[in-house]
Design a protein around this nucleic acid. Sequence first.
DNA 1: TATATTTTGCAACACAGTTGCATGTAAATA
DNA 2: TATTTACATGCAACTGTGTTGCAAAATATA
Lengths: 140, 140
Amino acid sequence: MDTRVHDILRRNQLSVTASREKILNLFLTNTRALAHADIEHKAGERFDRVTVYRTLQTFVEKGILHTIPTADNSVRYALCKNDCFEGHHHDNHYHFICSACGKTECLEEFVIPSVKVPKEYLANNVEIVVNGVCAACRKK
Amino acid sequence: MDTRVHDILRRNQLSVTASREKILNLFLTNTRALAHADIEHKAGERFDRVTVYRTLQTFVEKGILHTIPTADNSVRYALCKNDCFEGHHHDNHYHFICSACGKTECLEEFVIPSVKVPKEYLANNVEIVVNGVCAACRKK
DNA sequence: TATATTTTGCAACACAGTTGCATGTAAATA
DNA sequence: TATTTACATGCAACTGTGTTGCAAAATATA
């Protein structure tokens, strides 16, 4: 298995186990975000549901992954490319979901626009999800 | 029951039934968005789960309600104040969720900022959810 | 290698959401 | 208003999702 996977786990004070290595490797070898079901039923592998839930939760807590909220009520996960500290994500980017192929991507090259909130309100975090059609699907 | 409720239902070619009247009335008398559970266990009323699901689904299809995606994976519903045609929502606003009291609001007074997508991509719809603390909770 | 700690996987459970179908209710027609 | 038709409701049953407790297994540490 990739030595990079091992490094990431150790850097986050996590024991290196087969499940964690395999799941983390899925994210390193996929550019698109993955849903829980994608991981559980990944070709060739079969993980226990509970292990997948706990592994994803651990990775989010450690700042290795972040979640992407979607309108259809299915949470997807993606690698944090920035430096996220434990429990304090600050991925400064928004997300794109292709309505044709379902691909979910982090748009890291664009800055989150500033949004206004009512007077006396405090805005901590802005989640933006763009729905549309990706380049590959438009050509079909 | 409010005549306004009756009018909205008739305008959308929906039969006027007790459940629809009561559920729609909840939205007219609440400024905040409601989750499925809020409706099912509403004080004094008790609706069948299936009826609530089907009613909410019908209202969304007719453009009476719209859904608000949230990071915690719980869908909330709010009244569409603009003219939404069937299956084609164009509420031009974003949403605010208070992390202290859970209140969910439509921020209709602000315009959605334009966001960029990669070349060749097509953006159809932009969902923005602002997480923070509302004025009432900040004073506590 | 032996021990302490953590992780895993199973079973069981709680809850969310869906479907089919028989019954009840609202709307349309005469 | 009475009757017919179409639609909405509620129940039962089911699937899927996510959680918890606990014993067994694997990992880290000395």
